[in-house]
């Protein structure tokens, strides 16, 4: 009997995931009412950090939407890369309470983090200039200069007045 009970407990343990599966940012926004005041898990890229005293506002970007997460300032200081055009920000996993209209923060939608973990460090993106685009831009600029001077020349030849730009 003990063996059966033990087997049953082990089976249950194996079925239970280590951490709750993260909700997507879009899911949280679109079903805010059903998540209100409940514990949620959100994983996303850091796109903004604002440290305010002992706490910090970290904006996480996931699945096309960004959500503000309030955490301890010391947690926010663990973030090393903030996402922007040239960087992929750190990936952070947050477990916390979701507020559709936070009473503490002026009715804004946010998550108050109980657990804040940096799961992946961000990186710099390669944003080198595309050679084909550079060639195209040089061609266009050269064409513009050519057209300006060509038309000026025709103007002189035909004695027509083609005004110079901004005259």
């Amino acid at each position: 009997m003990k063996k059966i009970a033990l087997f049953f407990l082990v089976f249950l343990f194996l079925l239970t995931p280590g951490i709750a599966e993260a909700e997507s940012g879009r899911e949280l926004i679109e079903n805010s009412a059903s998540f209100n005041d409940k514990q949620v898990t959100l994983q996303g890229e850091v796109i903004g950090v604002m440290i305010r005293g002992d706490s910090a506002l970290v904006n996480l970007f996931d699945n096309g939407v960004a959500i503000g997460v309030w955490c301890r300032a010391e947690d926010a200081r663990k973030i090393s890369v903030i996402g922007d055009y040239r960087h992929v920000g750190d990936t952070v996993l947050v477990i916390g309470t979701f507020h559709m209209a936070c009473p503490e923060h002026g009715g804004d939608l946010d998550i108050h983090a109980d657990n804040f973990t940096v799961t992946a460090i961000g990186r710099e993106l390669d944003r080198s200039t595309s050679l084909s685009l550079l060639t195209l831009s040089v061609t266009f600029v050269a064409s513009a200069i050519f057209v300006v001077f060509f038309l000026r020349r025709i103007r002189k030849e035909k004695e027509k007045i083609v005004p110079w730009p901004f005259q």
Binding site: Y85, L133, L136, F140, S143, V147, V162
Partner: peptide, 21 residues
């Protein structure tokens, strides 16, 4: 330091000048 975006504006600007001319 976003030098890779400069061509976008140069192309737009050049097209504006050509059309104006």
């Amino acid at each position: 330091g976003e030098f890779d975006t400069v061509p976008y504006f140069l192309i737009g600007s050049a097209i504006g000048i050509i059309l104006g001319c």
